[in-house]
């Protein structure tokens, strides 16, 4: 289907989207790159001299950067581990014959729809608060000293909260993939004499592999940018104990108003995300041909 007329119309129809997204990508990106080589602080009026890679040098050698990088990785890997393993188990469970599956599935999926600020505050105050939180009550009733989660294990607590939000996503996608598994394929394997375990190993796992890849990649994109959960619970602290790259850049830019430094950090964040993005695009691009 395609006359020159239709093709011309198609170009016209697609151009607003392309122009908008191109602008959205190039203009801020160019500005970030430009600011990153200036000494530019909103609190210090005056001209903004070109300083080359000075901002990058400061940003990359700042101990806070190393901490943020490690925290970012720990957050991503930690949440991925919890959600992939937990999600696979939950998907396997929900795929079993049972009564009222729909209800249990809804309960499991619900956290995904809770806005990040709400889930962070609910966990922070009603569960992890060392005085009034449910965990404190629970510890006390067991005769243990209350534990100040966000002060003593801030990163762990944030991983916990974020995992709670993303577990439903992994579960839902793995469950969908599991249910799209061709039953005839399993039956054929059964006819061929494959036991339950080897059916799981040779048919279910490879089938889930693709979905799991997608989960890992998409979660990674979002997890690299976790922000609200940190902002409302620990503010990145104590010290830098729960500062990730996103939060660090935010702090440089909008708390210390250091535009140059913030921009350099932004460029670093973009490079990091792009490395992941390349893999994600490959995985999704393959499905486009199918």
């Amino acid at each position: 289907m395609a006359t020159t007329h239709a093709r011309a119309a198609a170009r016209l129809m697609i151009s607003p989207s392309v122009i908008l997204l191109l602008g959205w990508m190039l203009i801020p990106l160019g500005m970030t790159l430009y600011f990153s080589v200036l000494r530019y602080n909103l609190l210090m009026p005056g001209d903004n001299p070109f300083v080359g890679i000075e901002n990058y040098q400061y940003f990359l050698t700042d101990p806070a950067f190393t901490a943020a990088l490690i925290n970012t990785l720990a957050l991503v890997v930690g949440v991925l581990a919890v959600t992939i393993i937990g999600g696979t188990l939950l998907a396997l469970l929900l795929d079993q014959p049972m009564w009222a599956t729909g209800i249990w599935r809804i309960l499991v999926i619900a956290p995904f729809f809770v806005m990040p600020t709400v889930s962070a505050l609910v966990w922070k105050n009603m569960f992890m608060n060392p005085v009034n939180g449910l965990f404190a009550h629970l510890f006390k009733s067991l005769g243990l000293a209350p534990f100040d989660f966000l002060a003593q294990a801030p990163l762990f607590s944030i991983i916990w909260i974020v995992s709670w939000q993303w577990l439903p996503f992994a579960t839902l996608i793995l469950l969908t993939a599991m249910q799209s598994l061709d039953r005839e394929q399993i039956e054929a394997a059964e006819m061929d004499g494959a036991g339950a375990l080897s059916r799981f190993r040779h048919i279910t796992i490879p089938h889930l592999g693709r979905a799991a890849t997608v989960v890992v990649l998409i979660e990674t994109i979002f997890l690299l940018s976790v922000f609200a959960e940190i902002l409302v619970t620990t503010n990145g602290g104590p010290g830098n104990a729960s500062t990730n790259l996103t939060y660090l850049v935010y702090a440089e830019s909008l708390l210390r108003f250091d535009v140059g430094m913030g921009s350099a950090g932004g460029v670093v964040a973009i490079i990091l995300a792009n490395i992941v993005a390349i893999f994600l695009m490959r995985a999704i691009g393959k499905n486009l041909d199918a």
Binding site: S225, L245, I270
Partner: peptide, 8 residues
Amino acid sequence: PSVGVLVP
């Protein structure tokens, strides 16, 4: 990543 273009 959003934070990459936060400043501009």
